[in-house]
């Protein structure tokens, strides 16, 4: 019985990511923060669909003593997490290539200096 600790871990991950996004001025660190927020969201979906002592919703070689709807974890949050992970990888690649492009054009990754250069 581990009470609400997974949800608190989710909140901690999202807060750490938000801190990196808001207070860090380096663009690479902003990207790292967005990735941490995304892992927090994935962990939230997985913990949302967990049932106490549940097995995965797969019928191949299922143990005999599993009651059918009550003994399995929920399949829909797991499917959403699956699509979310692939989207996260694709968006991370796009963000990093934009950051590389910004570095080539402006010669810096500091957000304040980029803003000043444009004006």
């Amino acid at each position: 019985m581990i009470f609400n600790i997974p949800f608190i871990a989710v909140a901690a991950l999202i807060i750490i990511g938000l801190y990196a996004v808001i207070f860090r001025k380096n663009l690479i660190k902003t990207v790292i923060g967005i990735t941490i927020i995304e892992s927090g969201v994935n962990l939230f979906l997985i913990t949302l669909g967990y049932r106490e002592g549940g097995v995965p919703p797969i019928y191949t070689n299922l143990p005999e003593d599993v009651s059918i709807p009550r003994g399995m974890v929920l399949p829909v949050p797991q499917a959403l997490t699956l699509t979310s992970i692939v989207i996260g990888v694709a968006v991370l690649a796009l963000m990093l290539s934009l950051v590389i492009h910004i570095y080539r054009v402006y010669g810096t990754l500091d957000v304040r200096r980029i803003r000043r250069l444009r004006e």
Binding site: Y59, T60, N61, L62, P63, E64, I68
Partner: peptide, 9 residues
Amino acid sequence: IPMVGSNTG
């Protein structure tokens, strides 16, 4: 359609 319930796949 597989056998409903636990099967070997």
